[in-house]
């Protein structure tokens, strides 16, 4: 898969932001369109997470948002059980990671995707 959309759970969003510490209630998602062969970033998009202020079902609403934006990979803290089921159904691969910037996380994700 050369060009893929990878979603990162973020606070303010953007390549220099650090990963958020939770999935369902992360304030934003940074979606990076990237060529997995060359590592070239084609597009960076920051979306608001509908789960951030949701009354209930935050994780599933967040998962739905990733699916709607065409993300095929998610990088960030581990989603809960409901969100994990939703991501699986939506065909979004989960790469658990915390304590990194989006740029660092992107490098790790590309490494991991190459190994498969």
């Amino acid at each position: 898969m050369p060009v893929v959309r990878i979603a990162f759970a973020t606070n303010k969003g953007g390549l220099d932001d650090t990963l958020a510490d939770r999935f369902g209630r992360a304030p934003t998602f940074t979606i990076v369109e990237v060529d997995t062969d060359t590592g070239e970033v084609k597009k960076v998009e920051v979306i608001e997470n509908p789960g951030y202020r949701a009354g209930s079902g935050a994780g599933v609403k967040a998962a739905q948002a990733l699916g709607d934006h065409g993300a095929k990979v998610y990088v960030g803290p581990n989603p809960g059980p409901n969100a994990t089921a939703a991501l699986q159904y939506l065909g979004v691969k989960v790469i658990p990671l915390t304590g990194a910037t989006v740029r660092e996380a992107l490098a790790k994700a590309l490494e991991e995707l190459k190994q498969q």
């Binding site: 209930s56 079902g57 935050a58 599933v60 739905q64 159904y89």
Partner: peptide, 24 residues
């Protein structure tokens, strides 16, 4: 249905029938 669901119990992937999460 997914748009109307307030509790986030219905998930939709494009072009596929919805998935319902019973406990939500």
């Amino acid at each position: 249905c997914a748009k109307a669901c307030d509790t986030g119990a219905i998930v939709m992937a494009k072009g596929r029938p919805p998935m319902v999460m019973p406990r939500l």
